[in-house]
Nucleic acid binder design. Structure first.
Lengths: 336, 336
DNA sequence: CGTTCGTCCTAGAACGTTCTAGGGCACATC
DNA sequence: GATGTGCCCTAGAACGTTCTAGGACGAACG
């Protein structure tokens, strides 16, 4: 048993004592910066290994003015946020940054999540599809750089990285029209992030093709989609539907099929997000893919640019979406 | 612009200077511990408020020996992990602890996730459904208390909090048999955490009812379920199927219905997890619910008990599951 | 009047790192 | 032989907290 305590975590000083050098030198070796001979480096490494030394992030961050730490706020429910978090980890690692996560849960709101991160010395915040109002985000941005992902924010203070959601739905509509559809309905996402853009994209595309827009209330869950499907079944069926997101599309598909309607036979359906569920062989939903790789890379880069004081040209970076055609869309039936 | 820098984050010293007291006193006020008069308390609070002071977690944790921090490793893809994380936040808060999250992603394995947490001075680790081997977990447990949730581990070193997965499937089988089913097939989860227990529960229950067990390979994704369904369709359909989890059940349901088989008309189906998707009106899947509240509460409590050196009676805590009957199970058709 | 005891407060030392200055020392250069 | 000039290395001061010892002051007690 060590004289200082039963299971005290080993420190730089312990390693230094064992290797017979100063703590500063150990620090140099551990950080892999120049200033130590190969022989000593080896010796220090071995000593550290032997006593199971792990650098203490807290102390490290406390000392160095830059923490190289990015705070990420994400929704624990959102499957798409999971994808984004994955991408962010990779992007952050590439530039030598770490991530601290803070989850938004049904009981833990965004404010709490952000407050947690603020105490952790993050240099910047990346917030995924925030629900907070513009003013709250702007206030936050006065403290530290804030990058919002997958939602647009009307504030000069925060940076935004998002998909061109209007284009996404336009792609879907164009695809459907090219297949021969003339009667395309949109199921809306209400006040969800991105819903307004997608709605606009739908309207523009439909008008461009000289068709009449028709928008049904929807939402972001399967239940919302199911409700929309029931509304749809009440009248004459359109030949195609663009749905706010995949989950909603899934609910809609399910109700349509249970009502005996075939997809894509009687109705073509498109989703949005290209989520794992859309890719499943059994679902195989035509969907609009967001470029996670690019969204996350841009978000991290923008945060760093702000930190480095690089002049930023455009506050909002918009990434083009991509249509992934699968088996829920086909030419309309030759009838009527 | 302040003399010390353009946007330095305010510290205890800044608050102290403004309120005309010592830093120690400010610390006392901020922590809400006795040792300051009401008047000064008020004055310090106001000063802190005015300059927008936020305590620095890093420094705070560095100084105090106990960090009151629990590390949580979770899978960013797993919907159920999301539920558990929510519960953990709540449970930790109740006992005055904070959580630091570390995600496992396709590119970031468990080892990396754990390493990140170890540097963060967590007092204990809570690992959700780990894929790591027993020895790796045991090694880890030599460093600090490790609580594994939702998977059983054959090691005396780590604590386990899990659902009685065998009982869960037994509940499902009993329910089906009570409805009149005599031909119940199980779709397996392979090597996924919990799969072995569920398989065993199925076998036991079926034998108890003097029926013949039949187990089909499955997995944890919708695609696995779809494959199992196709295998099922190749021969005479059983009257009921218990599936490893909800996602797999979903894939199975989809393929069955597309093949024109009605559920629960021709086949009854049960899932496992009672995930959000199972609860959807359009899916409405009979499923086995895990008691998230209790799982997370027990996990946090156990971590704390270990830290406090409370003698622990049973290393493994098993929480009973609950069957949620919905519309995918019904009596078998009166034919044959 | 001297002691004892609270209450409120402060000085200064931790905590485990990194960073800034600089100290030796060998080797090359004048 | 003096002077640079590298390269290794170290002492000691940060970083922003919390914690340990008290100090000052008034009130209560002998």
């Amino acid at each position: 048993m060590a004289p200082t305590g039963p299971d005290r975590r080993p420190t730089l000083a312990d390693v230094a004592a064992r290797a017979g050098v100063s703590t500063a030198l150990v620090s140099i070796v551990m950080r892999d910066v120049p200033g130590a001979s190969a022989a000593t480096r080896e010796r220090v490494r071995r000593a550290a290994e032997e006593i199971g030394y792990r650098p203490d992030n807290r102390a490290r961050l406390l000392r160095s003015s830059r923490s190289r730490l990015l705070g990420v706020v994400f929704g624990v429910q959102h499957a798409f946020h999971g994808d984004l978090v994955s991408g962010l980890y990779a992007a952050a690692e590439r530039v030598g940054y770490e991530l601290t996560l803070s989850a938004v849960t049904p009981e833990r709101d965004e404010l709490r999540a952000v407050a947690g991160l603020l105490q952790d010395r993050c240099e910047a915040l990346i917030i995924l599809g925030p629900q907070s109002g513009t003013t709250a985000l702007a206030d936050l941005a006065a403290r530290l750089p804030v990058v919002v992902v997958a939602r647009s924010v009307r504030s000069a203070a925060v940076d935004v990285v998002r998909t061109a959601d209007d284009e996404g739905v336009q792609l879907a509509v164009d695809h459907l029209v090219a297949l021969g559809h003339r009667d395309v309905v949109h199921v809306d996402g209400g006040r969800a992030p991105g819903a307004a853009e997608r709605r606009r994209g739908y309207r523009d595309a439909v008008r461009r093709h000289c068709l009449t827009p028709r928008i049904l209330p929807g939402g972001l869950t399967e239940d919302d989609g199911a409700a929309a499907a029931r509304a749809l079944l009440a009248g004459p069926l359109p030949s195609a539907v663009t749905v706010f997101n995949d989950r909603c599309a899934l609910g809609l598909l399910d109700v349509l099929r249970r009502a005996g309607r075939t997809v894509p036979g009687e109705v073509s359906v498109t989703g949005y997000d290209d989520s794992r569920i859309a890719r499943l062989a059994s679902v195989d939903l035509t969907s609009v893919a967001q470029d996670v790789e690019q969204l996350t890379t841009l978000a991290v880069r923008r945060a760093l640019d702000r930190l480095d004081g690089v002049p930023v040209r455009q506050r909002e970076q918009v990434v083009p979406p991509r249509l992934v055609v699968r088996s829920t869309t086909a030419p309309p039936r030759r009838e009527r």
